[in-house]
Design a protein around this nucleic acid. Structure first.
Lengths: 103, 103
DNA sequence: TGAAAAAATGTCAATTTCGACATATATTCA
DNA sequence: TGAATATATGTCGAAATTGACATTTTTTCA
């Protein structure tokens, strides 16, 4: 794990007070966070490529603009379930989604 | 979607009162459920192949035997987050556990 | 067989995640 | 530029998910 990745995670709100604390993240915790960020980024790219605003997309999935923003920001208080449901709503293929999950 | 798959979903507790109701599941809802069942089955296979009891595995992931049973049963009230965390936990410690086993 | 171990099922209070709303900040473009 | 549009951030009560526990059912195997 390099410095860049660390900054990225910290910037997304994952409670990381210091480098020491950060280094205490177990491998599976790190993998879990990275998986969520991967889903977040994929979602944002897909929504943007479809020229949808967060507001319009929120309507599509019966949610709110603020929650979409949090999804795309990789907010820790957003579940994988919601991210996956959102990706499926954008007709992301099952195969693609599966590829983002652990094998 | 064939009859067999339908029975499988119904047996797992997904609220499906009638065929009509079942057929109203949107494609993304169906895909979401199937994805979760896939993770469930994968988890059960992995745990069993490692010769772990639900109780022992529950300890590994700081959860309970009953929750593990529900995960593996594809219970709707289990999140993908928990399933993924569990899968990651197994992968991480696979070598260690395997080393404790005969041959 | 039958007793012990494993797994399944039901319930519950605590915690987490939810949509919604208010509002601040950023981006777009005439 | 500046106003309109889009996105980000903080908070809240409601709803969903959690680990734990009790109990029942199933499986294992001597």
């Amino acid at each position: 794990m390099n410095k860049e990745k660390q900054m990225k995670l910290e910037a997304s709100g994952w409670k990381i007070g210091s480098v020491d604390e950060f280094l205490e993240l177990s491998q599976e915790e790190t993998e879990f966070i990275e998986l969520k960020l991967s889903l977040s980024q994929n979602l944002k790219e897909r929504r943007q490529s479809l020229r949808l605003t967060q507001k319009d997309f929120a309507r599509m999935i019966h949610s709110s603009q603020s929650r979409v923003a949090k999804m795309e920001a990789g907010d820790p208080a957003v579940s994988i379930d919601l991210l996956v449901k959102s990706l499926l709503a954008l007709k992301t293929s099952k195969k693609k989604v599966a590829g983002m999950l652990p094998h």
